[in-house]
Write a protein that binds this DNA or RNA. Structure first.
Length: 186
DNA sequence: TAGGCCATCTGGTCCT
DNA sequence: AGGACCAGATGGCCTA
């Protein structure tokens, strides 16, 4: 499966301790065949432009092409490594949340795991389905002649928020379980 | 082989 | 000032 690829990814280490010990002049981007081009860094055997794409110029046209003068090159590299690690951890947390979401939503079992976009789409549909179920239940308990209103949705939201405050992280799955059993009983 | 999906790096921007 | 967040870029793996 993907594990092979992930293993290969994890071995990708563009910045190493060795890099930190490089002489500033050696680590300066664009010193050889890259001379004269955009500031670049050597990553995983390829050169990446430090300034690329329109989004890079959001800060206002003239960006700094070279490292900031008030930080040493080594200091910049250390900060970059730390920043990379934080970003990795952040993405891992995001992926864990996606995995939790995959497990929370019912779907046809597949030999492969749901992609992120599939997970989000299914979750959206699932939420809409649950909402309509709940609104249907509440309308069936209304006095004859009355229809579900926005008040029903508001009370649903209020109920959910109450669960969030009371139960923390586990609240969503518990709430959905309650809804499921409730809809089966009625 | 092309396209989809993903992990990772990176610099800019926002927020505390 | 520093961390979080975001989006673009890149390259690897997998599948049709």
């Amino acid at each position: 499966m993907k594990s092979k690829g992930k293993a290969a990814k994890s071995s990708r280490k563009p910045w190493t301790e060795q890099d930190l010990d490089l002489e500033p002049e050696n680590s300066e981007p664009g010193t050889s065949e890259q001379e004269g081009s955009e500031a670049s860094v050597h990553i995983g055997g390829s050169w990446r432009g430090v300034l690329r794409g329109g989004a890079r110029e959001r800060g206002g046209g003239t960006t700094h092409r070279h490292r900031r003068s008030h930080n040493s090159n080594k200091e910049c590299n250390v900060r970059r490594l730390e920043s990379n690690e934080r970003e990795r951890q952040r993405m891992h947390k995001l992926n864990n949340a996606f995995q939790a979401l995959r497990e929370a939503i019912p779907h046809v079992k597949m030999d492969r795991k749901l992609s992120k976009i599939e997970t989000l789409t299914l979750a959206e549909n699932y939420i809409k389905s649950l909402t309509s179920i709940i609104l249907g239940i509440s309308s069936s308990r209304l006095p004859p002649g009355e229809t579900p209103t926005e008040a029903s949705a508001a009370s649903l939201l209020q109920c959910y928020q109450q669960h969030l405050e009371e139960d923390g992280d586990e609240s969503l799955s518990q709430f959905l379980t309650q809804i499921h059993s409730f809809s089966q009983e009625s």
